[in-house]
Design a protein around this nucleic acid. Sequence first.
DNA 1: CAAATGATGACCT
DNA 2: GGTCATCATTTGG
Length: 200
Amino acid sequence: MSPPRPRPDAVPDLRRPAVEVAPDLLGCILRTPDAAVRIVEVEAYEGATDPASHAFRGPTRRNAVMFGPAGVLYVYQLHGHSCCNVICRDAGVAGGVLLRAGEVVDGLDAVRSRRPGVPDARLARGPGNLCRALGIGPAHNGTDLAGPLVRLEPGPPPDAVAAGPRVNVAGAAARPWRFWVPASPAVSAYKRHAAARDLP
DNA sequence: CAAATGATGACCT
DNA sequence: GGTCATCATTTGG
């Protein structure tokens, strides 16, 4: 029996483990005041059990949001870029889903102006680029995903979901916690089939 | 205080 | 395939 897909008219329950939430976020819409993307590539990060997670060694100033309640955005800086996670699990237990790629479904002009010269299919390809496309930055850390700055909205579940190792993570093969929509042009080609398997 | 470290991205061969 | 610019955070002295 395959796992139940989320209803098209509801956002998935974010209080579950990130590994369960991650595939259910595919197809959902992330909206800022002037743009929106359909999420097509994500990675799950747990807490104390996941050495690749920012939360593995316990709370710090940077990762504090990961230990808070579900339903907020965790934004961190890396190499001069911003990356964002949807926070999962109840307060006190860390977990989050990194949003790695999306398809722009609203506010195309606004996104193009933030990413001049970039082909439409690549506007929100990559976690840093996705944040840039939506105008998400450090000020969004800890913001409510049901609030005015950022909204997570339901969307039609994808026809198919694939899973494989996380990107740029040591020992990634042990945990195939990256999930993506194989049909989406917003997922870079080499990642689409790298060590991929279809989700049961 | 100094050094190491990336959940990256753009560009190179 | 690979190099490297870049910078906040974290960790060690």
